[in-house]
């Protein structure tokens, strides 16, 4: 009984900050769904979102979450620019070319961050970042709850967008069958731009909550890319529910790994789980 109570804290925390992974993975999975290209710079873009929010909060004094009102459109436009001038050109050559370009962009972002903000570890400090609340015996940091709420809101918005708007349906159509979508009068180049823009907007959101939850450095991007990919693999590509559950499982296994194996075991457990699941089910747990 006592040990169960001890585990209640890591279990709740893991599930809650798994929400952060849901947000990051959703951006990656959206671009993958439409273009069939893994944007290997996604992690770096998320961390860029954290840094921009860091500047907004330290030098302008804007609350990071409030900053998103500006940050989301900013990143959306940035995404369209990157897609139009870099990725789409490479994409037309081959999927490998797009992957290599994205890899190069990731390195550029990383190094630029290092120049602008030094390699020191940073985090977003707010009035509520150290607050925690209590459920029964369990104390939970408030920011973890915010992660979870953000994930819920984002999933709902994206789901409604893809279901109900014309653009959303176009994105869904293009991701299901590109050629048929084209025949139906959907301009794939435009759909790619919008999808990439949304993915970048999600990176801005993910960046803010990442900064609130964990400390970050310019090189954090790679680990968050791998985490996001792990989440997608767990959930299965193209499945929203899958991504959501995958994120929570990932958070949970990270948290439990940390409890049982110590700090270095935190990511080991979910990564090994990813490889094992890929071996048994190459299309992910919920994939088609």
């Amino acid at each position: 009984m006592d040990s169960l109570a001890d585990l209640a804290t890591p279990i709740t925390m893991g599930i809650l900050y798994g929400g952060l992974y849901v947000v990051i993975a959703l951006g990656l999975s959206l671009v993958f769904g439409v273009m069939k290209v893994i944007n290997v710079a996604h992690g770096d873009m998320v961390v860029l979102g954290s840094y921009i929010a860091f500047v907004a909060s330290t030098s302008l004094g804007i609350d990071p979450i409030l900053w998103l009102v500006l940050g989301i459109p900013l990143f959306f436009i940035l995404g369209i620019v990157i897609q139009r001038f870099f990725l789409y050109r490479a994409f037309k050559m081959s999927a490998d070319a797009a992957l290599i370009i994205a890899f190069g962009l990731g390195l550029i972002i990383q190094n630029a961050e290092q120049l602008a903000w030094t390699p020191l570890s940073r985090s977003l400090q707010t009035s509520y970042s150290l607050k925690s609340f209590q459920i029964g015996e369990v104390y939970i940091p408030l920011v973890y709850l915010l992660d979870f709420i953000a994930a819920l809101i984002i999933i709902l918005i994206i789901h409604q967008f893809l279901k109900r708007t014309y653009l959303g349906q176009a994105i869904t159509a293009a991701s299901q069958d590109r050629q048929t979508a084209e025949l139906m009068g959907i301009n794939p180049a435009r759909v790619y731009q919008i999808a990439f823009g949304i993915s970048m907007a999600l990176a801005a959101v993910g960046g803010v909550f990442l900064g609130l939850t964990f400390p970050f450095t310019p090189t954090s991007g790679v680990s968050f890319l791998i985490i996001a990919f792990g989440v997608i693999i767990l959930g299965g590509l193209g499945s929203m529910t899958g991504t959501f559950i995958g994120g929570l499982i990932f958070g949970l296994s990270q948290s439990l790994g940390g409890t049982f194996l110590g700090p270095t075991g935190q990511l080991l457990v979910p990564f090994v789980m990813v490889i094992v699941i890929l071996t048994i089910r190459p299309q992910g747990l919920f994939g088609r």
Partner: peptide, 29 residues
């Protein structure tokens, strides 16, 4: 090879990207 070759194209790329990370974490322990 048994596990990564089941993944095609891009899955293979990212599946293999995870491997050095796992090894790094293992060798840190």
């Amino acid at each position: 090879s048994r596990s990564v070759f089941r993944m095609r194209g891009i899955y293979f790329a990212i599946g293999t990207l995870v491997l050095p990370e796992i090894l790094r974490l293992l060798f840190l322990r």
